[in-house]
Design a protein around this nucleic acid. Sequence first.
DNA 1: ACGTACCATATACAGCTGTATCATAATACG
DNA 2: CGTATTATGATACAGCTGTATATGGTACGT
Lengths: 199, 199
Amino acid sequence: MPRTVDHAERRAQLADALVRVAARDGLHAVTMRAVAEEAGVSLRLVQYYFDTKAQLMLGALRHLETRSRQRWADRLAELPDPVPPRAFLEAFLAEALPTDDQSRVFHLVGTSYAALAMTDPDLATEPFTLGIDDLDRQLADALKRAQADGKLAPGLDVTIEAARLISLSHGLGTSVLVGQRTVDAATEIVNYHLNQLFP
Amino acid sequence: MPRTVDHAERRAQLADALVRVAARDGLHAVTMRAVAEEAGVSLRLVQYYFDTKAQLMLGALRHLETRSRQRWADRLAELPDPVPPRAFLEAFLAEALPTDDQSRVFHLVGTSYAALAMTDPDLATEPFTLGIDDLDRQLADALKRAQADGKLAPGLDVTIEAARLISLSHGLGTSVLVGQRTVDAATEIVNYHLNQLFP
DNA sequence: ACGTACCATATACAGCTGTATCATAATACG
DNA sequence: CGTATTATGATACAGCTGTATATGGTACGT
């Protein structure tokens, strides 16, 4: 056997390089050569770890989703343990909106992938829906807890509210990235929304 | 002069062909040759009417926006003249969600363009923000009228509500196109939202 | 009538793309 | 210690891309 190298780590490096290229120049500018150069390796190496471009794209998408979960878990770890529902939702919204550079990159590249997935059936269902469904459940749980504590406005449907929060934050995120709204304006809207839920 | 031909119409035909290709195979599959073939003309003709590819892309985006405005105006024309605010908002949401094929195409291609615009400054500001800002105003006006008539829930900020409606519908639209939600589920959410505004 | 301005086609070209091939370095194990 | 296995490199190739060139037709103003 040769200089045994951690494949998972190498693939992660390449996936990160892809994300950097996509965030800077757009997902359409992602080529195997561009990824290789960004990662500082030869073209052949990219071929070696991701046989084909389709697998490279898919692998990077999965990697992006993993990174995002990690980031979300880290943020949750900083909150007090029985986390107050409203603080939980605020954390989610802060994470979902492109406030800092990392979430900006995530939203930008994620949206580009989503656009791809709309016409490419190989990409579509798996990595997207799963992550969001999970988030959906977490948000609904937090809302349910708030409702049980009587902190929520009366007559709300928690599952619909969860879906509404996700859709709203996603729509706001794109509007920010497209330059239509500032981050502050978007934040004002989500605060307004939260204030309607928590009177 | 030669066989005088309506330039605007020819460009519209080509733009439509581009949109068809983008809706079927994705915006990344749009090439000058693909557009030419889809429109049933020669490659050179596409070059003739849109000198460069960048202009073709921009022209098609503008055309898409025009088509969308036209569609919106047509729908408004079918409503009674002092249109009831709630009916107005329902019309907007029905139009914004990818319910029929035309709005599906519009949302799909529009989202792909939005993803492009996030990294391509030449595409960004103009055609997007303008159309949405206009819509924003119309929605805020309708809400203002409803508020003046006392039909709205108390304590609502109409400009924020307008922005919320647009962001929500956009986020829901993408979730539908990505296969995460059905159209019916999305419709249920927007109805729920409207019911909160109009008690 | 006719040639000039416009519309359209066919084809060429250089560059980039994904993929395949050939070659080579490095190392863990028998 | 040598050899099979893994990891990297250099390069070739066919296809597609945007753009440029060269050429043909056609309707009108004069």
